[in-house]
Design a protein around this nucleic acid. Structure first.
Length: 433
RNA sequence: UGGCGUGUGGCCGACUUGGUAAGGCGCCCGGCUGUUAACCGGGAACAUGCAGGUUCGAAUCCUGCCGCGCCAGCCA
């Protein structure tokens, strides 16, 4: 539509006559001669007033009976009105129904259950809560990319189709690829190590897939991961980047997503406490702090959700836990030269039970060590040959990490479940809409 | 995969000790020229996941199956 304006910018047109398009989200009448329509075009919503005398009678009737979610074209005058959320309303002079919606739009103004809402995700997306979550998601992505791009990183894409796995094949989704079986990517890390040797500081951002039969509020089978990788970086630098990037995310969301946080009724004070610096404690220290609590575990055992929650509850901000036992971590992690029983890895745990939002660390540059680990863990050697080439031709220290986008978004908006942080979440039980 | 929980109209949700399915939203009609999860009056339609069992009688108790949810493991 030629001269149509976005509802978001209506306040710049007070007193002017404008044309707008949108969906009728709500309708109220005061007699047969005055109708109030809440119209949204996605950018924002506004109250349109259709009054007898201002529009032809047949348009007045159309406004009286227009079903929810119908698309309409409105010409009218923008008026200041302190009673309205955006501060303005539109007094219609022309009202046209572009497409009348069926009268049984399933999403009502009253409460619904999770199952029903997820079944109707394509329509639920129009509601204020999902819209706020999607805007926050977009801002989190923007903040991360800005942080890395400004820091001199190069965005490099990782493949989705792969014949090898970074961490075994148990949690991979097999797909038919011509006459063979390959797998959907569960990480871009190995490829980013190759890219880092070409470009220094790199990152990839894309979907990853895990066939984990997890049905918790922190798991999706398809999720987006941001994975920076830095040549010649060590664990401390790696943690600096984790902290800097998440710090930037928190700052940006607070700065630019105020209205969205309000829609979600997110307590801002909690986020304001989450600006850097973040505490950094070793796995061993964490266990010492857990001693005597319900979450206490023997040294050597991996952190579970109860340990993560207990550790994060000790601080009011994200916590970096580093130097986990070598035995429980992936083969490519570099052992600490000063205490080889632990690796130079690090996880960032988000507050409020949102769990591990980042996992990463230094990669081993030692060819012989990696060959031994691959054998010890019973991994097939052949698929890793190309990866081992990276150690044969100019081995270098490398460090990086992976950030789970949906977990960060769920935490920012206190969404309760990662499925609300994705537009169309894929879980064990749901692959549609 | 395991543990726990749950399944009532299009949606939400009662039915407590087993006794013959509330109420609300939505929908339709009407009223109101300033409403905003509008309000007021009237109306129609629509339901106990599936299969067994106990009982005079089951939405309610028992068993199995299926779906969903939460938690755990695994991870981001």
């Amino acid at each position: 539509m030629q001269d149509r304006i976005r509802i978001r910018s209506l306040s710049e047109h007070v007193g002017a006559e404008v044309v707008l398009c949108g969906w009728v989200r709500q309708r109220r009448s005061s007699g047969a001669k005055l109708h109030f329509l809440q119209v949204s075009d996605g950018t924002a919503g506004v109250q349109v007033v259709v009054k007898k005398g201002n529009v032809p009678d047949e348009q007045l009737e159309a406004a009286r009976y227009v079903p929810f979610e119908s698309t309409v074209v409105v010409r009218g005058t923008v008026k200041e009105d302190a009673r309205q959320v955006g501060g303005v309303e539109v007094s219609a002079t022309e009202f046209e129904v572009m497409s009348a919606a069926a009268e049984d739009f399933p999403i009502g103004r009253k409460e619904h259950g999770v199952g029903f809402l997820m079944d109707n995700r394509h329509l639920w997306l129009r509601s204020s809560r999902p819209r706020a979550a999607m805007r926050i998601r977009a801002e989190v992505i923007r903040a991360c990319r800005d942080y890395l791009d400004e820091g001199g990183f190069t965005c490099v894409d990782a493949p989705i189709f792969n014949s090898s796995a970074a961490e075994g094949t148990a949690t991979l989704f097999p797909v038919g690829y011509f006459d063979q079986t390959i797998y959907l990517s569960q990480t871009g890390q190995l490829h980013m190590e190759a890219a880092a040797q070409a470009l220094g500081d790199v990152y990839c951002f894309g979907p990853t897939f895990r066939a984990e039969k997890s049905k918790t509020r922190r798991h999706l089978t398809e999720f987006w991961m941001l994975e920076p990788e830095m040549a010649f970086a060590d664990l401390d630098e790696d943690m600096d980047v984790m902290e800097g990037m998440i710090g930037r995310v928190v700052e940006r969301v607070l700065e630019r997503c105020g209205p969205e946080l309000d829609v979600l009724e997110r307590d801002r004070a909690i986020l304001e406490r989450c600006l850097p610096p973040y505490p950094r404690i070793s796995y061993t220290e964490a266990l010492e702090r857990l001693e005597g609590t319900d979450a206490s575990i023997p040294w050597g055992e991996d952190f579970g959700a109860p340990q993560e929650d207990a550790v994060s509850a000790m601080f009011e901000k994200p916590v970096l836990v580093h130097r986990f036992p070598t035995a429980i971590k992936a083969f490519y992690m570099k052992p600490d030269p000063e205490q080889p029983e632990v690796v130079l890895g690090c996880d960032m745990i988000a507050p409020e039970g949102y769990g591990e939002i980042i996992g990463g660390g230094e990669r081993s540059a030692d060819l012989a060590y990696l060959e031994r680990k691959i054998e010890e863990e019973g991994l097939p050697k052949e698929p890793y040959e190309w990866y081992l080439d990276l150690r044969r031709y100019g081995a270098n220290p490398t460090a990086g990490f992976g950030m789970g986008l949906e977990r960060v978004v769920a935490w920012m908006g206190d969404l309760g479940h990662v499925r609300e942080a994705a537009p169309f979440a894929r879980t064990m039980a749901r692959t549609s809409p």
